[in-house]
Amino acid sequence: MSVIKRIFGLVWAAMGLGIIPLVIMRAMQEIAEKPTEENWIFWSIVIVVLMPIISFSLITFGIFALKGEYNTLAN
């Protein structure tokens, strides 16, 4: 189980890192195609609020998991 938790740690960290370019590229593409107020508001909320929370938490959590910090279950 500990090995699985560590391997998944890599997955979470990679996921957290991967989200950043993916979201930024999609936002740039959408805003370039349709530079409306709605698009700006939506992508600003995603990039400024949601993405940093998801990325930071997944990367940090992933690193902890990879290091075996969660080998004893959280309780």
């Binding site: 979470w12 938490s57 997944l58 940090t60 969660y70 959280a74």
Partner: peptide, 14 residues
Amino acid sequence: KKDNLKMVLVALLG
């Protein structure tokens, strides 16, 4: 503190 931050993260993501 790492021990508490670990719990905050697992509470959020799990």
